[in-house]
Design a protein around this nucleic acid. Structure first.
Length: 587
RNA sequence: GCGGCUGUAGUUUAGUGGUAUGACAUGAGCUUCCCAAGCUUAUAACCCGGGUUCGAAUCCCGGCAGCCGCACCA
């Protein structure tokens, strides 16, 4: 039994994760979060909100999970997310149909399935595997987006969003105004995304419905330094730059090319493209460690140039080392340049550029052309608009001579000199219009949850018996405190229930358990990662003190009930030993 | 999607053409004990559908799911 099996087994037994629809046999690619899983997920998302929304000031928005076709035409998902497949009937190998006809047409990926099939037959394409001709079946197109229809009549196509990002790009104009028309600003969204994976076989690592937490940070393309860079420049991360990757598809491999560098070094040595990206690598690192990922089993892998989307400047994946799947991507952090906004501007025919004001306005000399449209209009009729545009584009040397020549639809058209006046004017230019660049950290929450479970899971020998422990950080542990009467007797149960109630009123998430022996209950709580247990025993009845047991060390301290809530809250924030050292009675 | 293997309580496991064994877990009780102790007892399963048969969990077919390989993997 490998670690993945142990963790998924534990997660199922203890109510973290269940395969969805199991009552009806289940379907691959869908998981339910049970009571503990949903709590863990909520806590991890809340930490993400604390860091990105509150500390960075990237407000959270919420956009529909269904998008209209136009959005995904602009984003490229309707084309780029679809792969035409074909199967050889002789050897049963399947191939990308567009790859088979790559040498025959310029843009095979733009062709419909029927056309690709026709070309394959016409050119007698051989099966690359077995060499057979005429063995290919029909080309089947498979788009990874779930398709649906909007409204009655079923004619309007909608798609379940394959990422949360597009909703934020589409709202760019509103957001820019909301942030009082200043760059940089960021916006976030935590929500479901959907990809109809062909064969999702890796449990919670590859889901058809999954949760993303994404930030889109819109920045001035000429200003990629980060104002808070000096605060993080000494942080050391494990980098795995593209130039160090010796295998062609290194996603799950490790060839030892990881280097540890300070963030300052990484930027100075041009390993990371710029400060802004580097800052977000660090922020990602801090988040992942805080939710329970082992920094020693984490790296930042740079995309190879051919792997990176063509528009991106630089792209890094935070990857975690897992027992079964090797290195797995859990966060992608990319400089997407102006690709997304430009593409939406083009498709929507809206100007999504913003004015970047100069510190001091520039004086610019310009030729102002003033054609006499009262004459030109009736003279050129339908072409008058083109004439006007052409005239306005002329420089002084074109206007100076006796005759003015312009080009309309490939023809040279002379314009009478006296119809066009011009003068040189001095204009004040206040700034420059640019399409903002986008820095996008994109988190796969489900994978992060799995990684946090795997990295915090351990089996420890205690007096010859295995103890299963989830060493989750207290801040993310689903149950924060277990309240346990030492024995199942009424005189201990009554005060225990009262203590549990008081803790709940103080905002601590508490479970109460009086079944079985105390040892069994400690182990149960160890397995689900409960960091602290409060035990009520016979001393409690005499002196109003209880013990707090630490999950990781199994050490206990004794303290008055009155200090309990405050101490536990401090422990959840800062750990057991800090708070424990203020109490002597460790046993 | 293709090929191979597999499918028995929550988990694990025995078994076979006549409705199912044990363990762990869980509930109740005893024990009154600070790290999965013990005892009693209870709950609980043959993936789904169809066929063959007097009778199918067992044999056959189909589906679904899981594992492995191929392909795919923003």
């Amino acid at each position: 039994m490998d670690k993945y099996e142990k963790i998924i087994g534990m997660a199922k037994r203890r109510g973290f994760l269940w395969n969805s629809f199991e009552l009806y046999g289940g379907t691959a690619g869908f998981y339910d979060y049970g009571p503990l899983g949903a709590m863990l997920k909520r806590r991890i998302e809340d930490i993400w909100r604390k860091m990105y929304v509150i500390e960075e000031g990237f407000y959270e928005i919420e956009t529909p999970t269904i998008g209209i076709a136009a959005i995904f035409d602009a984003s490229g998902h309707t084309r780029g997310f679809s792969d035409p497949m074909v199967v050889c009937s002789k050897c049963d190998h399947s191939f990308r149909a567009d790859h088979l006809i790559e040498g025959i047409v310029e843009t095979p990926d733009a062709l419909p399935a029927s056309e690709i099939k026709r070309l394959i037959d016409e050119h007698g394409i051989k099966c690359p595997q077995c060499g057979g001709t005429g063995t290919f079946g029909d080309v089947s197109s498979f788009n990874l987006m779930f398709k649906t229809t909007i409204g009655p009549g079923a004619e309007r196509v909608g798609y379940l969003r394959p990422e949360t990002a597009q909703g934020m790009f589409v709202d760019f104009e509103h957001l820019f105004r909301f942030y009082r028309e200043k760059l940089p600003f960021g916006v976030t969204q935590i929500g479901k995304a959907y990809r109809n994976e062909i064969s999702p076989r890796q449990g919670v690592i590859r889901l058809r419905e999954f949760t993303q937490a994404e930030a889109e940070i819109f920045i001035n393309p000429t200003e990629k330094n980060h104002p808070k860079f000096s605060m993080i420049e000494d942080t050391v991360l494990r980098y795995y730059p593209a130039s160090h990757q010796r295998v062609s598809h290194p996603a799950h491999e490790d060839d030892g090319g990881i280097i540890e560098l300070t963030t300052r070094d990484a930027v100075d040595r041009a390993i990371v493209a710029h400060e802004f990206l580097a800052y977000h690598l660090v922020l990602t690192h801090l988040f992942l460690v805080r939710v329970g990922i082992d920094p020693a089993r984490m790296r930042f892998r740079q995309h190879q140039p051919d792997e990176m989307a063509h528009y991106a400047v630089d792209c890094w994946d935070a990857e975690v080392l897992t027992d079964r799947f090797g290195w797995v991507e859990i966060v992608g952090i990319a400089d997407r340049t102006d690709y997304d906004l430009s593409s939406h501007a083009e498709h929507s025919k809206k100007d999504l550029s913003v004015l970047i004001e100069y510190d001091t306005p520039k004086q610019v000399e310009r030729i102002a052309v003033k054609p006499d449209m009262g004459v030109i209009g009736p003279l050129y009729k339908g072409n008058a608009g083109k004439v006007l545009a052409a005239l306005k584009g002329l420089g002084e040397e074109d206007l100076r001579g006796d005759e003015i020549k312009i080009e309309i639809d490939g023809e040279i058209v002379p314009i009478p000199r006296d119809l066009v006046e011009y003068e040189t004017v001095i204009e004040e230019v206040r700034g420059e219009r640019v399409i903002p660049h986008v820095i996008e950290p994109s988190f796969g929450i489900d994978r992060i949850i799995y990684a946090a479970l795997e990295h915090s899971f351990s089996e420890e020998l205690v007096a010859g018996v295995t103890r299963n422990v989830l060493h989750l950080p207290a801040e993310v542990a689903p149950v924060q405190v277990a309240v346990l009467p030492l024995l199942t007797r009424d005189e201990l149960i009554t005060p225990s229930l009262a203590i549990a109630e008081t803790l709940r009123e103080n905002g601590v998430f508490v479970s109460y358990d009086d079944s079985g022996t105390i040892g069994r209950r400690y182990r149960r709580n160890d397995e689900i990662g409960t960091p602290f247990s409060v035990t009520i025993d016979y001393d409690t009845l005499g002196d109003d003190t209880v013990t707090i047991r630490d999950r990781d060390s199994m050490a206990q301290i004794r303290m008055p009930i009155g200090e309990l809530a405050e101490t536990l809250r401090a422990m959840i924030r800062h750990g057991f030993s800090d708070a424990a050292t203020r109490h002597n009675q460790i046993f």
